[in-house]
Design a protein around this nucleic acid. Structure first.
Lengths: 127, 127
DNA sequence: AGTAATGGTGACATTTAGGTAACCAGCTCC
DNA sequence: GGAGCTGGTTACCTAAATGTCACCATTACT
């Protein structure tokens, strides 16, 4: 019963059961995948300030290409993080916005930001 | 002053200041990088159950190659997540363990696991 | 008819991450 | 001296992520 930090901190609920352990690892990788890559965080941040059209995102998320933007948006839509609405204006306009479901993700992102900020300080201060 | 979810949930501290925004995005990517890739979470999980030697990790982290393991360990060491101790036994043995600093990361990982678990349920239940 | 804006898509090239297998030094056992 | 263990490193190769650039249909304006 001496498995150190993880159990003692009650951060990992299940101990040495390989299957539960693997499920947990997969869950973590799922989340990392949903948030990972070069652009997702920027897109979420941009949409965090309000709904945007495709061309607005293309302008605001600096450096992204049209192809990658549309792919990322599609993926985030199938992950239910984003709502896509086609307006029947002339010419046609498409609006993207964060979904309500995406709100669950914001505290997670917040923690990533906090830890990253502190970590950067820590690393640059190391001799 | 209508920038929706993010501010209303107080999840992003600073509003529409581009520089602060970018710093935050970088911080998030730092964290994602520290935890990202195919193996880091598995290594942390394995070391979470107690200190391990190189060859033990090679056996327990199933599928990893020696090259990648040593690279990941080095990187995690420079990120101060891991302590490396050379024991002067014969033959020489090297022990790896999670650092105290790494404990700060465990709640973050915990959140990733929780969200990932719920998200998987959500996605498979979608029509 | 020509130009520009909308929201994209497709073929291809490049970059990065990860995998394979051979090799090495130091030591021990036989 | 040969085989086997330790903890690695190296050169080379494949696969995945990302970037570039050309292209498309629709509508509107001039």
């Amino acid at each position: 019963m001496d498995h150190s930090i993880i159990d003692s901190k009650a951060c990992f609920t299940t101990p040495h059961d390989a299957q539960a352990c693997n499920k947990r690892i997969m869950a973590i990788h799922d989340t990392l995948y949903v948030l990972g890559g070069k652009w997702k965080i920027s897109i979420i941040t941009s949409l965090g300030f309000g709904k945007k059209r495709y061309s607005e995102l293309l302008r605001e998320v600096k450096g992204i290409s049209g192809k990658v933007l549309s792919r990322e948006l599609k993926e985030m839509e199938t992950n239910l993080l984003i709502k896509r609405t086609v307006l029947d204006t002339q010419p046609i306009a498409v609006e993207y916005e964060l979904s309500e479901y995406c709100e669950n993700l914001l505290p997670v992102i917040y923690n990533l930001a906090e830890w990253g900020t502190e970590h950067r300080k820590k690393i640059v201060s190391v001799p």
